Structures are given as C-alpha cells and as structure tokens.
Simulated assay, not measured.
Amino acid sequence: MKADGQLYLDLMKRTLTNTIYRGVPVAWVEGQPVFDTTRREHGTPWLNIAHTMVSVRRLDNLQFCLERALADGVPGDFIETGVWHGGACIFARSLFKAHGVQDRTVWVADSFQGVPTTTAGSHPMDQELALHEKNAMLAVSEETVRENFSRYELLDEQVSFLSGWFADTLPGAPISQLAVIRLDGDLYSSTMDALEHLYPKLSPRGYVIVDDYGIPACATAVHEYREQHGIEDEICFIDPYSIYWRRSTGSSGW
C-alpha cells in the first residue's frame, strides 16, 4: 500500500472516532462532558456524534489483523458482530479499498435493535448487566448504518448485512471462510453465539478480536468456548479491556 493509502486510513480513524470535530461525551458512561484527546484515543469518552465507540488503538489493531491476514494470504472475509453506527466495519471496507482488495466481503451483523432483553432464562451474568435498559443509545437502525457507509462512499457489493439476533442469523449465514472475526456483542449469549457459529469458519492463521473482554460476561464466554474446544492460542491484549488471538493451524474450534 502506498503512503497516500496509509494517510487515507489514518484520516478514516480520526473521522470515525471523531477526534477531529470532537463532541459531547455520553453522560451515562462518563458522567462529565469533557473531551480529552488522549483518553479518546484509548476509547473514552464515547461521543454522541462519533460513528464508533472503538478507540484509535483498537482500530490500529483491526488494521494490523486485516493487513497481516492479507499479507499472509489468509483466505476469507471480515465480520463484526455488534456494529453500533458501523464504524469498525466502515474502516474494514476502507482498508480493503486502500489495498485494492476486490474479492473479500465485510459482513455487518447486528440486531439493529440494541441488545436482547434479558429474561429469567438468560445467562445470570447477562441478567445482571441488563444492558437492554440502554437500548435507547445502543440501538441503531440498519438504515442509519447503511447511510453511514454511503457517507464515506463505501456502500457497495463488498458489504453485506446480517440483520437480526445472532442466534437466528449466524447459524445459516452464507459465509464460507473468515480471515478476521471481530466480536462486539457485550453479552455472554451474544459472544457465545458468535464463537459457536463463526469460529469454525475462521481460516488457520486468521484472527479473533474481542472488543468487550473487559465485561466479565463476555470474558467468561470466551474462556468457556476456548476450554471446550481446546484452544490454547495466546491471548494478546490490545488495551486493558480488549483482546485478540491468532488461530493456529492446530486449533480446531469444533
């Protein structure tokens, strides 16, 4: 990729995270409306007009994983489960464009209704989180996400939407291979659904990124799945709250 391609990707990061125009932090997360450039680069505060909650550091990690997969010839697409305004998926599509990649799809998987309402049958840790109470902020419509892609001129045939709860959409998703999986579903159930139905499609040397590892419910699902399937690939920290690992040629995931 040429230097101007990297300049384009750096600008995408600053725009998607809104470190350019800045904004007002979401009060229920931060409690005080103060913008701090250093903190925003590490993911806080969440801004009311940004297209992603993902930090610059986490977008750097996404770029690393995607570019490493491309350089090593790892076959497959990219998927994010839980996209909010679509920022990380928009960035992934921009990276494919910068590298001239025309044979990989960005899969945008979300309920577009927020997180599921917990019930008596939900995992106890999900019940305790009760994140559905924040759906007024978390729920972003598919139409809005599509419009966000269009604003960057990145809504095309290499972007596909999986609309609905993960338990309903992921089992039959028309995806053959994945090179990078990015999980951002917060809950135990959402994380486990994604791992169960997507990890078997992850190519050897492909990457798994877990945005919400700092949430105990999510971390529990990750460790239970890894233990159940004998996955011993090294977990690497992106920051204190998110992780990734690279699938070895010997780990099954089945």
Score class of each variant (00 low, 15 high):
Q32H: 13
P33W: 12
P33N: 14
V34F: 12
F35E: 11
T37Y: 12
T38P: 00
R39C: 08
R40E: 00
H42F: 12
H42P: 00
G43A: 09
G43E: 02
G43M: 05
T44F: 10
T44E: 09
P45W: 10
H51D: 15
T52A: 10
T52M: 04
V54C: 14
V54P: 02
S55P: 05
V56T: 10
V56F: 03
R57Y: 01
R57I: 12
R57V: 11
R58N: 04
R58T: 02
L62Y: 07
F64H: 12
E67Q: 15
A69E: 12
L70D: 06
L70A: 13
L70V: 13
V74K: 03
P75S: 05
D77C: 10
I79A: 03
E80I: 10
T81K: 09
G82D: 02
W84Y: 14
H85Q: 14
H85R: 15
G86P: 05
G87M: 04
G87Q: 03
C89K: 02
I90V: 03
A92I: 09
A92G: 06
R93W: 06
S94V: 08
S94H: 06
L95Q: 09
K97G: 01
A98N: 08
A98H: 09
H99N: 11
H99W: 14
H99G: 00
G100V: 12
G100H: 12
Q102A: 14
Q102D: 13
D103I: 09
D103C: 07
D103R: 09
R104D: 01
R104T: 05
R104E: 02
T105Y: 06
T105W: 03
V106D: 00
A109N: 07
A109S: 13
A109C: 13
A109T: 04
D110A: 06
Q113C: 10
Q113V: 06
G114Y: 02
V115T: 12
V115C: 05
V115S: 03
T117G: 00
T117S: 02
T119P: 01
A120Y: 09
H123F: 06
P124Q: 07
P124L: 07
M125D: 08
M125H: 05
Q127G: 03
L129E: 03
L129R: 06
L129S: 04
A130G: 11
E133S: 15
K134M: 11
N135T: 11
N135K: 11
A136P: 01
M137E: 11
M137C: 03
L138W: 04
L138N: 01
L138F: 12
L138D: 00
A139N: 10
A139H: 11
S141P: 05
S141D: 06
E143Y: 11
T144F: 05
V145W: 04
V145F: 07
V145C: 08
R146D: 04
R146H: 08
R146C: 10
E147I: 10
F149W: 10
S150M: 13
S150N: 13
S150D: 14
